[in-house]
Amino acid sequence: MKNELSIPDDIITSKIYYIREQKVMLDRDLAELYQVETKQLKRQVRRNIERFPEDFMFELNQQEFDNLRSQFDTSSWGGTRYAPMAF
């Protein structure tokens, strides 16, 4: 018997954002789904950047990040000062 993790569709759907005319998930949400720290996810992506197609991931610019933060309770971002990656 395999150990499978089943995540309800509504939880995944709530973590999808529309940025740069694309539906994306942010690094912190992917890290949560994969049960790893966000910094660990970002570190692995940067170490293996050649494995990712050019259009697979981008980092939010400061304006996009500020706009996103203004839409949510600031405390939900954990005080992060680095713009997230979008996948």
Rank of each mutant, 00 (worst) to 15 (best):
Met1Ser: 12
Lys2His: 06
Lys2Leu: 10
Glu4Ser: 07
Asp9Met: 06
Ile11His: 05
Ile12Ala: 15
Ile12Phe: 15
Thr13Leu: 10
Lys15Trp: 03
Ile16Met: 08
Ile19Lys: 05
Arg20Thr: 14
Glu21Lys: 10
Glu21Thr: 03
Gln22Pro: 05
Met25Arg: 06
Leu30Ala: 06
Ala31Cys: 06
Ala31Asp: 06
Glu32Ala: 14
Tyr34Ser: 07
Tyr34Met: 08
Val36Gln: 13
Glu37Thr: 05
Glu37Val: 03
Gln40Trp: 08
Gln40Gly: 12
Leu41Glu: 03
Gln44Glu: 09
Val45Asp: 11
Arg46Gln: 07
Arg46His: 03
Ile49Ala: 06
Ile49Val: 05
Glu50Ser: 15
Glu50Val: 09
Arg51Tyr: 08
Phe52Ala: 04
Phe52Asn: 07
Pro53Leu: 04
Pro53Gly: 05
Pro53Ala: 07
Phe56Pro: 05
Phe56Met: 12
Met57Gln: 15
Met57Glu: 15
Met57Val: 15
Glu59Ile: 05
Leu60Trp: 04
Asn61Gln: 06
Gln63Glu: 14
Phe65Leu: 01
Phe65Val: 01
Asn67Ile: 01
Gln71Lys: 12
Thr74Leu: 12
Ser75Asn: 14
Gly78His: 04
Gly79Arg: 00
Thr80His: 00
Arg81Glu: 00
Tyr82Thr: 00
Met85Trp: 09
Ala86Glu: 07
Ala86Asp: 11
Phe87Leu: 08
Phe87Ser: 06
